[in-house]
Design a binder for these strands. Structure first.
Length: 114
DNA sequence: ACCTTGACCTTGG
DNA sequence: CCCAAGGCCAAGG
């Protein structure tokens, strides 16, 4: 686990817009395609260390289910930004919330400060 | 070097 | 989607 991977994951997660969500595999695929390493497990492993610095609630499993540990809190945040949930309201409807990051999210042209 | 743990994914029923 | 079994990748003891 290099810091480059850590930064890349957090970068993508931070790029997820409100009302949308991404899967661990999706993030791992984007970051993996950029650095050529890592997997869905590594993304989750990082997320656990991430903290509140990133919109972790917009990151869900392939089933659209957020971490049971903060399930209640995640659902509240998701509902707060009008994220498309399932009938149960206990999961994210990836059929609508599924979002894919642009190709310039990682090595993209940063707006920088000046 | 071996086993276990972890905010997982895929395949098959 | 749910359950069950196998795979994948990396870190810790």
């Amino acid at each position: 686990m290099d810091d480059a991977y850590l930064d890349a994951v957090l970068e993508v997660v931070a790029a997820i817009p409100p009302g949308h969500a991404m899967t661990y595999g999706g993030i791992a695929d984007v970051v993996g395609a950029h650095l050529g390493q890592g997997g869905p497990r590594q993304v989750g492993q990082i997320m656990s260390h991430a903290g509140g610095g990133v919109p972790w609630w917009r990151v869900v499993s392939s089933a659209g289910s957020p971490p049971p540990r903060y399930l209640s809190e995640a659902l509240r945040r998701l509902a707060a930004e009008a994220c498309p949930l399932t009938g149960d309201g206990s999961r994210v409807d990836l059929r609508r919330a599924a979002w894919d990051p642009p190709d310039d999210v990682l090595g993209g042209p940063e707006p920088d400060n000046g």
